[in-house]
Design a protein around this nucleic acid. Sequence first.
DNA 1: TTCGACCATGTAATCGTTTCCACGAGATGA
DNA 2: TCATCTCGTGGAAACGATTACATGGTCGAA
Lengths: 338, 338
Amino acid sequence: MVSIKDVAESAGLSVATVSRALNGHPSVSDDARERVLAAAGTLGYRPNVVARSLRTHRTGTIGLVISDVLNPYFTELARAVEEEARELGYSVIIGNADERADLEDHHVRGLLDRRIDGLLVSPADGRSPMTLEAAAGDTPVVFVDRWITGVDVPVVRSDGRTAIADLVDHLHALGHRRLAIITGPAATTTGRERVDAFRAALAVHGLALPDEYVGRGDFQAESGRVCTERFLNLAEPPDVVFATDNLMALGALDEIGARGLRVPDDIALAAFDDIPWFSHTDPPITTIAQPTAELGRVAVRALTDLIAGAPASSTVLPAHLVVRRSCGEPETKGATRE
Amino acid sequence: MVSIKDVAESAGLSVATVSRALNGHPSVSDDARERVLAAAGTLGYRPNVVARSLRTHRTGTIGLVISDVLNPYFTELARAVEEEARELGYSVIIGNADERADLEDHHVRGLLDRRIDGLLVSPADGRSPMTLEAAAGDTPVVFVDRWITGVDVPVVRSDGRTAIADLVDHLHALGHRRLAIITGPAATTTGRERVDAFRAALAVHGLALPDEYVGRGDFQAESGRVCTERFLNLAEPPDVVFATDNLMALGALDEIGARGLRVPDDIALAAFDDIPWFSHTDPPITTIAQPTAELGRVAVRALTDLIAGAPASSTVLPAHLVVRRSCGEPETKGATRE
DNA sequence: TTCGACCATGTAATCGTTTCCACGAGATGA
DNA sequence: TCATCTCGTGGAAACGATTACATGGTCGAA
């Protein structure tokens, strides 16, 4: 590999001057600059960012630890993060935690060892020691989508409470009374928030949320299937299943299909997170959409502010209900279905 | 940040001994090892991999440049790559090219500057100078999924030719005679291969592939929609549209739905790449499935072999047809539909 | 006892940059 | 004319690790 030293030799200048010329430092003569550029060009010189980072203590890189790359919600988030970061001059290294605390730990540790300038993380729960350490350490950290209660780190997320209330209103208007929910792990903030909001919204309509109508999932498709199986085996199965992420909705759909049941006639289905496929499933799925890309962009800006030394604030963006056909025909509103 | 020097001081030993103790070097006394570990523990020492990489010329990292993170096919690939790499002791840095040659260039350059140990890339076409440079340079490179003709780099990919022939047989048996295809960019090898195989398979049945039945897409949903729109506006629209990736199939579905047409009664649809959602679309989509995860794992092993100095060979894995209902009911095989 | 082998440790060079400081040459101002 | 300032440049010290080489001590064999 050709180093700055080779360029210096070839241009007949010192490495200091070469470095300055390459970095656009003002006090370099035109003549020197030209010779450096020419030499660098012919030698095919490329800076060694490893050496540069060691010297400058900056890597120009931010880490992003997401819960699950296979979840379209997170890939959309990741894409937006990378795009915004690139525009601000940063690279992004993505770590996929696969909803496992040990993997989250692994990636956070790896990213810190790599001396990233800042870290964006969607923490599975509070059980990753490295995430806690990172939050307490001096590397800037911003939580996105999920957070850890009691940890003082800016959070960029969306609030689904209003949208969940809208969803429950919608379901109630369609005549549904037995509403079940498949939640994420209780340890995740999004898992808790969604079930709490759901319960609160039910209460407004004088409905209870019995324990057997609460399925404990893990944001993965299989858990959605298992919970749905349990619901359908109940003496009194629910009218509606609300899956709090798109993968668990997929699992629910699998189980419902496997039993030869139809949505929404036999059982209605609603989900959280909107993805393009939800328009084309059979039937199209009513869901709560988050401003995912915006979330990613705002999170990056919060993080780069923090890196620049500015105080970063938390942001909450609203989610909204997207009505499709999986809970019943919207036009038959008011019809009782008991 | 606490460095190895601080640990040395705290343990009352030299940095050399600390380094050896930390790296499990044999000739370190038990006493010294213990003191080092204790000091490192209480100080919260974490190795600076930037410094280590500079010295050792190894980063323990491989780069992966994929064509599109929003495409479930590539996220599955990325996940498998990361998993296999992690097991072999490597980290992965993912670059998303978004099907754009300039972004591919950007990421390849960034990864090389970062001195990754090896590069896995799914080249959009031959128009990224950096990709060509990387292939010619001394950083080990392996192409995955796509490749660049004439460039001597190991390729790990799947061969869809047989599966495409099976698909055409299936379509022919269902009575379809006017078959259209939405291809990827002609510059991509997968784009070319799929249309060539399709044309060859049609020829076996004595069918031609007229130009107006060839839609030039770009592996993105919108292009699938546009091509489908053009097909449907033809005086004699095709019986079947074969979209050569899952996103273009989504776009096709959008357009078909927007016109109020039904699949497969009004027009049949087949796709390339299988994703979980294809079982749940309306109707479930007949597709060609690649052994995606296996592709990723094999690619990583080929690359690490190359890094280790062993000669790496190319691998071709077979794809296979998955019949669902989007081309007509399989049981009504042989029925003519003219 | 003495010599070589071996073991644990330390010293210092090195990786490729950036950047502080010093220096000489012109330019400027008194 | 001389002091001072600016400008372009080079020398050399960092950054934080690894590792070749040197060193001093212990031990077993002759």
